[in-house]
Amino acid sequence: MHSLLNALLVVVLALNLFALGTSRIITVIKVVSLQGLLLGVMPLLIEEHLALAAVSASAAAILLKGLVIPTMLLRAMRDVQIKREMEPLIGFLPSMLLGALATGFALLFATALPLASEHTTPLLVPAALATIFAGFILLTTRAKAITQIMGYLVLENGIYIFGMLLVGAMPLVVELGALLDLFVAIFVICIMVNHINQTFSSLDTRRLAALKE
């Protein structure tokens, strides 16, 4: 089981770098949704005996992150008619390298962390840290509103990976509540993206600069 889990986590890490290195926004959406889908499958691999609660939480996560959210975002993209992320604060190649560096650092750092003995082997902790960091890079260096949101989703995915260490701490109600919040958040964001585009004729958040001291 652990080797399969580790293999999936390596794919998740690779997807981080892919999302950092591409300029096509549709590709980023697809990459992040694939990542969400993989993460939804993982809890099923971790638990030895599957309870109904765990299966339904996983199913909800897969459905939401793999299907509903990308559909909503792709529809929003179609309405605003943009294709590429232009002029990021840090270029695509440098941000990919930065992400790779962060991944390596996370792997080293995780060995120094005081982890419970059963967590020292799988890649969960370093993968969580690296994904959170990749999310931060996307969130802070991209200019288009929709790519920033992809950064937030990657960040959320990273936290989700960490949550897998804590089977049992989060009751089903909380997991479903968090997913519902994520759904509403993306819904609100899609409306906002649409309004930003209508008002500013662009999704470039650098145009949102009227309010400052």
């Binding site: 920033q148 964001i189 949102l208 009227a210």
Partner: peptide, 19 residues
């Protein structure tokens, strides 16, 4: 337009904080 900007910043910063 100003309230759109305010809402966007509120959401983005708020989401990161809550995460």
């Amino acid at each position: 337009p100003r309230s759109i900007e305010a809402t966007w910043k509120y959401l983005l910063i708020g989401f990161v904080g809550i995460a």
